[in-house]
């Protein structure tokens, strides 16, 4: 069940858009903000609020790479794998992340602390290579900086 707060936030969001269905992505993100991801149960509830079928909303939800339909860790690391980061050595960054965390892309550490995902160009190419952790950019990375960077996230 969605909480009162979630419902209120979604209702509020509906006012920003001409029609209810337009608030779909935003509504899913509200659920995700509170729970980390969007389960089938919550997706169905949101679909009810928007007046669309769950399948229709799931079609939307699964299109967007930053709407998570599977459980993720407490912190989500998005590793930019686009061209400027590729040229400046993102592969070494990714390799170090995978080794330190013991997971591959799409994986979550057994303690639920981190999920590792690829992302396309973060638009911070002047600071390449870069990653985004919980919405915060970390640029000019080198493999040596990875461990101390991760320490900031409990």
């Amino acid at each position: 069940m969605l909480t009162e707060t979630e419902r209120r936030e979604i209702e509020q969001e509906l006012k920003s858009y001409g029609r209810k269905r337009a608030a779909g992505v935003e509504a899913l993100k509200i659920v995700q903000r509170h729970r980390g991801w969007v389960s089938d149960e919550h997706l169905e509830e949101v679909a009810g609020i928007l007046g669309v079928t769950p399948d229709e909303l799931d079609g939307t939800a699964t299109f967007y790479s930053l709407v998570f339909r599977r459980e993720v860790g407490r912190h989500v690391i998005l590793v930019c794998d686009s061209i400027s980061c590729w040229i400046t050595g993102y592969e070494d960054i990714l390799c170090r992340l995978q080794n330190v965390l013991g997971i591959g892309l799409g994986g979550t550490t057994p303690d639920g602390r981190f999920t590792l995902l690829p992302v396309c160009c973060l638009g911070v190419c002047e600071q390449a290579p870069a990653v985004l952790i919980d919405g915060k950019v970390h640029g000019n990375l080198s493999p040596e900086k990875i461990e101390s960077l991760l320490e900031k996230y409990e």
Partner: peptide, 19 residues
């Protein structure tokens, strides 16, 4: 938005904005 390069395509953007 919530990711996907296609959202920057003019008409893809419109579909996205319609949910």
């Amino acid at each position: 938005s919530a990711g996907r390069y296609m959202c920057g395509e003019e008409t893809g953007l419109l579909n996205s904005l319609e949910g």
